[in-house]
């Protein structure tokens, strides 16, 4: 196995150490590297959404006060279909002008509600308040409520849902 030298034990030991660390690192790499890929691989796949969603007839929304519309979208995550819920507030300003806001708080993604008494969207998590037009009135949110691009076709509102 090991060659004879003046101190056979030492050289033999060193030889074994070298072989051991060599084979050990091969095994470590051949299992370790794939395991890293295995663990992080779902993080490398981003599913995109680029869709026009119908919110129903324009006439069904009152002028002046926000109305919540909820819908779902399904995505494939691993072995299951994940159904994500979305909520949007439609604020109709006049016959044809409107704004569509996401009900996701820009702070930490809790869902805001319209509170008639204080005339603001209030977040149940950190007491943030947004005004009718999405501006921050109070609390920690870093930016106004997110707004959706929309179009009106045959009297129906369509919003542009994008996610990357």
């Amino acid at each position: 196995m090991a060659k004879k030298s003046s101190s056979p034990n030492l050289s033999r030991r060193d030889f074994t150490k070298i072989v051991m660390s060599f084979l050990g690192s091969i095994m470590g790499a051949m299992v370790g590297v794939p395991i890293i890929g295995y663990v992080i691989s779902p993080a490398l796949k981003a599913t995109e959404i680029d869709d026009w969603v119908s919110l129903g007839a324009l006439d069904s929304y009152p002028i002046g006060s926000p109305k919540l519309f909820s819908f779902t979208r399904t995505k494939v995550n691993g072995w299951e279909q994940t159904t994500n819920s979305y909520g949007v507030f439609v604020v109709r300003k006049s016959e044809s002008a409107l704004n569509v806001y996401s009900n996701v708080c820009t702070h930490l993604s809790c869902r805001v509600n319209w509170n008639e008494e204080v005339a603001a969207y209030t977040c149940p998590c950190h007491d943030a308040q947004f005004g009718l037009n999405g501006e921050v009135l109070y609390g920690p949110p870093p930016r106004p409520m997110d707004e959706y691009e929309y179009t009106i076709e045959d009297g129906n509102i369509l919003i542009h849902l994008t996610e990357a």
Binding site: M1, N9, R12, R13, F15, T16, K17, V19, M20, L23, G24
Partner: peptide, 11 residues
């Protein structure tokens, strides 16, 4: 010796 002889073979 267990180390390195036996371990070498095992490895």
């Amino acid at each position: 010796k267990f180390w390195p002889d036996i371990i070498y073979k095992d490895l």
